[in-house]
Simulated assay, not measured.
Amino acid sequence: MKIIYALAFSLLLFTSCNNGKGQRIISGSNGNINSLLIVVDNLLWEDSVGETIRDVVAASVPELTQSEPLFSLSQMPPTVFDGFATKSRTILKIEKGGPAGMVIKHDVYARPQTVVVISGKTDQEISEQLINNGDEIIAAFKKEELKENQRRIKISLVDDKPLQETLGVKLNFQTAYRIAKQDNDFFWIRKDLPTGTMDILVYEVPLNTIKNGDSTIVDIVRMRDSIGKVHIPGPVEGSYMITEESYTPYMNETKLDGKLTYETKGIWDVKNAFMSGPFINYAIEDVANDRYVVIEGYVFAPSVEKRNNIFELEAIIKSIRIL
């Protein structure tokens, strides 16, 4: 019997170290969404290198109604970077002494995990690497966090059959959300917060609603303001959601579900009422059906941080598939 137990233990140990394909099995990563571990010597952290790190990865998130950092940072020196700490999902390591460079690694100590290593012989070289590669560093960490957010969302999904049958789109959103309003080809999906709500709008407009060119952002603002007037009433009679008139939204061309998409970020307001907050709007070009599928997320949560709320909405929106 002891021999059987020994053989079983040996087999378990072997399969734990090897998955049969020559690859090691590593434990799962951990960490809150948008939390970033910085592994850097204390002296560097307290000097110009630390200042540059904070300028790059803790810069304020644009298009929010209050200042919030891109990532919440925690720091530790390399001498204590061991054990549980190595399981953080996103890690920025600073290595002084080697040639200047930046390397992005995946699943080094845990899975899933993104580790960015910045090296340089001097403080100045390290800072230059951080600044020159800042956009790529942020994009790598954001990609990892988006995947993690979507993984968590999939744990408890709402049946999106009404969206599929009415608009021909599939969307992953969790059971904390509910379809608050359905009006023909318009859906209003809501999640209650202790201090407000998180909202998702899904609808379609004719393809000629948004023209590609100098008027694109004007067309998008006009479109969302008209939708707000019809479907999103404010707290008093005659009030409704509009785009903040004194703040020009940010617009970018991207792709969702492999289709040309206009990504717009800005501040929403309520006409004739004191309410506002951040929004993200995606207009997806669906040429086959002569339409734009528009999906927007916005947050109303006065006096509280909204970075992670908007990021969750972005993760939901980017799961959309046109059937």
Rank of each mutant, 00 (worst) to 15 (best):
L313Q: 11
L130I: 07
K105F: 07
S119L: 01
D219V: 09
F71C: 10
K318Y: 03
L7S: 04
Q23K: 14
F81S: 10
E136T: 10
Q23P: 00
V304A: 02
K105Q: 15
P249C: 04
V270M: 15
L146A: 07
I94F: 09
F279K: 04
K147L: 13
A6F: 09
N281P: 00
S246Q: 12
V158S: 11
L193C: 04
E128T: 13
N272W: 01
D225Y: 03
V115D: 01
M1F: 10
A100F: 04
F81H: 12
Y250I: 09
D41W: 03
D225I: 02
I53K: 10
S48A: 15
N309W: 02
S72Y: 03
I53S: 11
L43D: 14
I322N: 06
I227R: 05
I267T: 14
A59G: 09
S16C: 13
K255H: 13
I3A: 14
K21T: 08
L256V: 09
D225F: 02
F9E: 02
N32Y: 05
V169A: 02
G258V: 05
S88V: 00
I4N: 08
P278R: 03
R307A: 13
L256F: 07
G196Q: 03
S215K: 14
P206M: 04
M1G: 12
P194F: 01
T195S: 05
N18K: 01
T243K: 07
I155W: 03
D47L: 03
L146G: 10
G234W: 12
V57K: 07
E312H: 06
I25S: 11
A100P: 08
I189L: 05
F279S: 07
D183Q: 13
I267P: 04
R291W: 06
V49P: 05
D123F: 08
V294H: 02
I179S: 06
G196P: 02
I179H: 06
G234E: 13
S72E: 12
L193I: 02
V116P: 11
T114Q: 05
Q75R: 12
P78M: 11
L64E: 04
V40Q: 08
V221I: 15
M76D: 06
I138W: 09
R291S: 09
K147V: 02
G31S: 10
S88M: 09
G266Y: 08
T197Y: 13
S27I: 08
T209D: 04
T65K: 01
E136N: 12
D135S: 13
I26Y: 05
Q174E: 12
H231L: 02
